[in-house]
Amino acid sequence: MTNTYVDKSYAYAVARLRHAELKLLDGAFMEQLISAKTTEDAVRILKDRGWGSEDSDDLDEMFRQETEKLWNYVDEIVPDLNVFNVFRLQNDFNNLKAALKASVMDTDYPGIYAENGTLPAEMIRNAVSTRSYKTLPVSMSEIAEKAHEVFLRTGDGQLCDIMVDKACLEAIREAGLETGDSFIGEYAELKTAASDIKIAIRACLTGKDRDFLNMALAESGILSVGGLTSAALSGEDAIGAFLASTDFAGAVQELKKSPAAFERWCDNLITDRMESMHYEAFGPGPIAAYIIARENEIKSVRIILAGKQNGFPAEMLRERVRDTYV
């Protein structure tokens, strides 16, 4: 939207958000959930807080409803939802992967498509099944065509996923930088870099070669892809040494623990960078911070409830729950 009357200051949206932030779950609430005796008790506490709906007890449905509530709310308060594409593109590319697999294997599972992307899942599915890639945006059409061709030729689903994932990271980074907002740009850079690190670690552990890394690692402004590739080829310790001189120095310890610990560290790093958004009265930054905060709390609640269902001790859950924004 290039309408000059569009409110570029986001004053209305940010003020609305300040009130909505009061309803975000804080650390004490997470603790209360962890301490709940049973999953049912925890769900009851969440419902009292307005989560899910009264008529459904299904947990997946509850998480789906919360994500939908978040996006409906953001759509309601901002003039142009496309500014927040960094958070939505992942769903598009996941749908693309699902559609490619469904098309090549000639089966279709309607439930595998994610909502809240920038494009309707149906559109991606149709474009892939009829091979009319032109209907997709450029960032997606080229890779869709290429991945489809590679998948058909090699039958290698993993290779196809890697190609699409890289295109996804590139699209996220581009969308982040395009907004011109420093916080959203930083988020996109951190997300790309964190995904690259995860890929490099996995590639290193499974002994992948340089060609694989070149194909999988996306360009990032805060991490040299060349440096990461060389480190990944030399071994896990080299990755640690390489990261020690970057923004991810603190993550080296976490990487040694587990991939889950690293992911938590990355989420917490972003939450930490979000702190300054508490004091911003204008711009899309505070809205982006709210989206991340809501997505993180949904993630944390999912971890707690899954842990409770499987009888994990409270201490284990505490280690996995993300820091809260409020």
Partner: peptide, 10 residues
């Protein structure tokens, strides 16, 4: 604009 935002919520 900010005031309208707050009154929408509360």
């Amino acid at each position: 604009r900010s005031a309208a935002g707050v009154v929408t919520q509360e």
